[in-house]
Nucleic acid binder design. Structure first.
Lengths: 237, 237
DNA sequence: CGTGCGGTTGATCCGAGTCAAGCCAAGTGG
DNA sequence: CCACTTGGCTTGACTCGGATCAACCGCACG
């Protein structure tokens, strides 16, 4: 019921044998010979929600593309507080390329399936496959752009603005079900870590929006946007 | 006196005719034929401190490499508040590649010299020059990594921690002069915009560090680190 | 049944933003 | 040469948003 039925997604991903890397954006540009080369390198790995694929500061020995599931990219402070620096969805490339150490941790927040490649081998392949490197560059630039907007949000927006902004982005990216409900793929804690807020503040602001009629929260992992324009107004100022 | 004498830098950059793009990291990997192709595309442009090279939201028609000077990358809020999302130094590539609109503004904060290329032509060249695209990818990944640490800072660190972190990074990147002084390339306002703090808070925290003996501020554009380890302790917690 | 976990709610506190003066050095014009 | 302005910076007083601390709720699970 909650989320988009991860089991089905996982089965679909596992049974897909046509494309060696899950990302259509990458795969579409590969000549057949390179697809085969990629396929020969890969290893499929499944993770349960909560399991970590890579640790910040650890040696970067493998990279992967996501076939199914959602990952959080995070950094930790010495005192244990965590900050999410991004999310990764099916099709995204994860892991540190062209660098010896991982610059952030990667943790599955739903059950997930990955195509894992040894980093060195993948880098060699990229070096001889301009289409692949181009796709990686385009993705990195898009990530960079997103990271910059996130910086603006973290540095300048108030708590309600941050929550409203997140809800709007989520709504834009998700297809609502028949009842107009959207799955919230994060716990309150993760939401706080993403928005740079305490868990209590997240909870309160969601409640405020519900009381003011902008949204409904049928359960704490679901969302219905009742007044998009109103929410957008809150997000902007 | 303040900064590293931008005039000299500019003259040096202007008289450099051997390398079509200022970035050694890019240029070193280019075969001679491609260097010539790049050179044919380029146009040299000089900007005075405060002039803007690209506006957030504007069509992306040109890209450039920095030969001399420092640029700020910034985003603006509707209410006029600004957030710096990064700095760009000589050798860095600026401007939006592979996208129709600029995702942030670029403003010279010192006098500067650029090698400007039409975006479309540069992209075509990149498409046929794997070494160039590889260099761009490596740079984008490094930028991304830096952006992520910046996110952590903006979301989680206290004002004194942010200021201390910045001072340490600056000290690490700069060569002090004979008197141990380091040039601060930003105004208080820009410092605030970078660290997500008000100008008053920046001023106060710098003063606090001076009074506590961690640093000295001979003038408001110069810095002497008196107690690096102590400053590092403040930055961490 | 307890127990633990995720979430909510309330009370309190403090850090940093805001507002308002004031300082100082560099113009600028009479 | 001096009065006046201007812009970047500092300092102080006050305010308030969001963190923190602490209960408490409801549900799943052993």
């Amino acid at each position: 019921m909650q989320l988009q039925s991860p089991r089905d997604d996982m089965d679909a991903a596992m049974s897909c044998n046509t494309c060696p890397v899950a990302d259509p954006a990458i795969c579409a540009h590969l000549p057949p010979s390179q697809r085969i080369a990629l396929a020969a390198l890969r290893r499929t790995e499944t993770l349960r929600a909560g399991e970590t694929f890579a640790w910040e500061g650890a040696d970067s020995v493998v990279v992967a593309t996501i076939r199914a599931g959602v990952f959080k990219r995070s950094l930790m402070l010495a005192d244990g507080r965590e900050q999410l620096v991004g999310l990764a969805f099916p099709g995204d490339m994860v892991g540190r390329l062209f660098g010896p150490v991982c610059d952030h941790s990667l943790t599955a927040i739903t059950d997930a399936v990955l195509c894992v490649f040894p980093r060195a081998a993948f880098e060699r392949l990229a070096g001889t496959t301009p289409e692949l490197e181009h796709a990686l560059l385009v993705q990195a630039l898009a990530d960079l752009s997103r990271a910059q907007r996130q910086m603006l949000m973290l540095a300048r927006l108030s708590a309600p603005q941050r929550v409203a902004t997140f809800l709007l982005e989520l709504a834009e990216r998700s297809r609502p079900d028949a009842a107009g409900r959207i799955a919230i793929p994060l716990s309150r804690q993760q939401l706080g870590d993403l928005l740079g807020l305490s868990i209590e503040t997240v909870s309160r602001k969601l409640r405020d929006f519900e009381r003011s009629g902008h949204i409904a929260l049928p359960d704490y992992r679901s969302l219905v946007v009742r007044d998009g324009p109103g929410l957008a107004a809150l997000a902007a100022a």
